[in-house]
Amino acid sequence: MQREEKQLDSALEAIILRVSDLKSAIAGMLYKLEHEYETLNWPNFLDNFAIISGHLTSLSKILGHDKAPNMRNFTILPLLLSPEKDEDLLRMTEGRISTFAHDLVPDYLRTKPEPMAEQKMNHLELKASNLTFEASQDSNKQVAQYNKVVSHVWDIAYKAREEWEGEAGARAAQVQTSSSADTHTLVAAIGMGKGLKSDSGPMAQSRVSPGPPGIMAGRSGGQAQAAGQGQIGVGQMGKAPSAIKTNIKAASQIHPYGR
């Protein structure tokens, strides 16, 4: 904060210096115009212009410098206006302004619009006040119509946006079109019969029941496991080596398509 204030102070000092230079240059030129107009020649006069323009350039350089604070961001606030004569002010302004009063402040501190803008505003206001009642009604109608059109267009745009966002949202939500769990279920089913064997178990058992009891016990154990664990069941069943041949025989018996 302090650093900024210091920066502002130094910038202001530099600006004041430049402005006083500029002022003295202008005063010098005015003096020459008033007192030496008889002997003044063009090159001299143009030299004076060059000096003024040099001062202006250096002033704008200071204002545009990176470290210079942005003068636009500062506000000058007139705290007190008085119609009394102010000696200090008179001295400070070298006798140009004697009172800090209502008629001068707006011009000096720019508390009213620029003269050009003000002129335009006045012109427009005059035109508006001169309108006849019908004409104003007519323009009111036009304004209403225009508002209607604009709001209609806004509605369309809003609806389109809503639809578009809804679509995008739906698309984002729809991303889940496949599930790897389902893929695995299906592939395991057709590849190894996982989840498909459970029903063949009881069926096979019911068919094999007329067979010898010993074989049946071996089989049913194997089948139960096959039902529970899928492919592993097949391996387990084979672990009873003596049952291999019998299994084949049993298979031929139980086979659903055997005729």
Binding site: G193, L196, K197, S200, V234, N247, I248, A251, S252, I254, H255, P256, Y257, G258
Partner: peptide, 10 residues
């Protein structure tokens, strides 16, 4: 079936 194949699943 005659070859000794057994139906695994369907």
């Amino acid at each position: 079936t005659e070859l000794g194949c057994r139906i695994d699943f369907e």
